[in-house]
């Protein structure tokens, strides 16, 4: 099955914004994982994930986000979610993700959270 995700990156001040579109399944989450790993290795430890056009995220993809949050927090940074589609929000709700982490409506709103820290 040819699930596809399109990942685009841009910078907002000192924060990297990673936007993921499409259907993130077990067959393509590695692509997302390698991009996040590259960013963290490069020293970009403040990252905003824009999931507003993501239709689905599997538990493997969620594991990548979780692992990266722990990694960046250890290095003094963080990962915030800025923008989230309803489908993905339902999935995040089930896992309890939204009860632990703030999910902002837009990347700009998420950027504000970085400003405080």
């Amino acid at each position: 099955m040819g699930d596809e995700i399109i990942i685009s990156q841009n910078t907002m001040g000192n924060v990297e914004v990673v936007k993921i579109k499409g259907f993130m399944s077990i067959s393509n989450y590695m692509q997302f994982e390698s991009i996040l790993n590259q960013l963290i290795q490069k020293g970009s430890i403040k990252i905003i994930l824009d999931l507003s056009e993501l239709d689905y995220i599997s538990s493997a993809g969620l594991g990548v986000i979780l692992g990266s949050i722990k990694e960046t927090q250890k290095l003094g940074g963080d990962i915030k979610v800025g923008g989230c589609s309803q489908e993905v929000r339902n999935i995040l709700d089930v896992f309890g993700f939204t009860q632990v982490f703030t999910v902002s409506a837009t990347p700009a709103a998420a950027k504000v959270l970085f400003g405080k820290t």
Binding site: F95, G96, Q99
Partner: peptide, 17 residues
Amino acid sequence: TSGVAIGITGPDMFENL
């Protein structure tokens, strides 16, 4: 009911939820 997955957060928050 509320509750988060094991491995997402520390024990205090986990147990509170």
